[in-house]
Design a protein around this nucleic acid. Sequence first.
DNA 1: CTAGGACATGTCCCTAGGGACATATCCGAG
DNA 2: CTCGGATATGTCCCTAGGGACATGTCCTAG
Lengths: 180, 180
Amino acid sequence: MSLRHGLLGLLAEGPASGYDLARRFTEVLGSIWPAQHPKIYAELNKLAAEGLVEVESEGPRRRKAYRITDAGVAEVKRWLTDVDVDHTMRLQPLLRSLFFWMMDTDELQRHLEAEATYYRELADQYRDYAARKDRGEFGYSEQTQSMRVTIEAGIRLYSALADWAEWAQTVPPAKPPKHA
Amino acid sequence: MSLRHGLLGLLAEGPASGYDLARRFTEVLGSIWPAQHPKIYAELNKLAAEGLVEVESEGPRRRKAYRITDAGVAEVKRWLTDVDVDHTMRLQPLLRSLFFWMMDTDELQRHLEAEATYYRELADQYRDYAARKDRGEFGYSEQTQSMRVTIEAGIRLYSALADWAEWAQTVPPAKPPKHA
DNA sequence: CTAGGACATGTCCCTAGGGACATATCCGAG
DNA sequence: CTCGGATATGTCCCTAGGGACATGTCCTAG
């Protein structure tokens, strides 16, 4: 049910079309909450049927812009304050790390290097975003302030993973017992 | 398809029953790759049908222990080396953070405090695990060495999130433009 | 004027996962 | 001896999400 509230939250910032929302989801949220456009359009229709959003305007190319309703705003707020946070995490890279002992050393090193690079790049990307925000490129609304906080989490998370992947390269493949 | 390979990987360490595997999934993997027992039993049956695992023994209380086959081992290795890592992350807490501007200050502070505590506790738990491992409590096999690496990721990840939640408490609710 | 590409919205099907429910088995405490 | 709790394995249904496919609209470069 998070996509639902993700859409409502984004619409709380201002009217947008499904297409707009899909772009925002892939651009900003791509690495923390992926969502494909079919799901987004379907959910918007449901939200409209329930009166949480309404069609604000119809533009060129069949574009439909949605506006959040008062009921919609109330629903996001309810979610934010009354519904327990779902802390579920599902990180395939960490699951894989449990089985590093099955890989041979060379392959593992190459794997860890690639992982480190991947995470480092994402961290840099977020750091960049943060710098632009801090330069005032996105204005100073409360919304961008929240985005700044989200981005900070991205920076820290991906930096931690990059550091971890680098650290893991230094771990000896197997530590023999002392009395061996 | 990760549960499949998760099970195979765990079975590569030695025979185990569905019950054992379910326990390992909730205890060690609970916070990085949750899995419920119905899925595990179902997947084990599929794996057995495909010849990737086989029933090693039947014990008391209908217990069935599975052993991985050569084909199964080959399949995990193929997964580890030939299949691209899925970096998908889906972190509801970060999605929520985008909408912090909709919460009032008190609520947000309480929320962030609870989050910080939650992550700090998990980090501590993993740190504890690491200490026990480093004391040699789990032996010195290559498997425990890999587990140590996974645990390190948990420590770093949850520490980063805890730090972030604490840092976020110090961010002013909205930064007004300088020329205001 | 026409063809390709970006904009824009959808349908359909399949798999993965969550959660409630059901059931059999064994052991130990009282 | 019996009853509760841990062990152990499943079924069933529903929703969320991934990915392929389909279609309509407008603009612009050649």
